[in-house]
């Protein structure tokens, strides 16, 4: 089950999908790193799938708009650092892609966004406010790109 609106978002620490296997702190990020910003988490099933590609391509166009609402978007899947890197470069994606790779799906499970049968993230969206509270959570059917309407509506409401 997704974490409902009003609850504190659980902490996480994930490897940034930048194609580096160095165990350096700068190759990891956590919830605290986004404190003071509104944070949009876009869980998605897999790099290279059609729907994921077009969903992230849409968010990629909207990063400036999100920034106007003091918000940052990150993408999360169970893909590894090199897969993310190649996917990012191929699609010219500007947002961070995080690897929920080891232990596989650990963060997604915490956020109720893991599909045990398929072993991938659900297509789930969270908007977390500057104080770390969940303001919006939604899971879309695997094959349906949820767009950005509700994300924007939530950001307008909380700003």
């Amino acid at each position: 089950m997704l974490i409902p609106q009003g609850q504190l978002a659980p902490d996480f620490r994930l490897h940034i999908g930048n194609g580096s296997l160095d165990n350096k702190p700068e190759n990891f990020t956590d919830l605290a790193a986004f404190k003071g910003k509104n944070l949009i988490l876009a869980f998605y099933p897999a790099d290279w799938s059609d729907v994921c590609g077009s969903q992230l391509a849409l968010y990629n166009e909207l990063l400036d708009v999100f920034a106007q609402y003091d918000a940052v978007l990150v993408g999360i899947s169970v893909d590894g650092a090199f897969c993310h890197k190649a996917f990012k470069e191929h699609n010219n994606l500007k947002m961070l892609l995080l690897c929920d790779f080891e232990p596989k799906g650990a963060m997604s499970k915490q956020y109720g966004a893991y599909n045990e049968t398929l072993g991938v993230c659900e297509r789930a969206i969270y908007v977390i406010d500057k104080s770390g509270y969940v303001q919006y959570s939604y899971v879309s059917p695997m094959g349906v790109n949820p767009g950005a309407k509700e994300i924007l509506e939530t950001l307008k409401k909380i700003n």
Binding site: Q55, V65, G147, L152
Partner: peptide, 12 residues
């Protein structure tokens, strides 16, 4: 136009 699309749920 683009933003009117986003606000109307255009997803691709």
């Amino acid at each position: 136009d683009f933003m009117s699309g986003v606000e109307s749920g255009v997803n691709g």
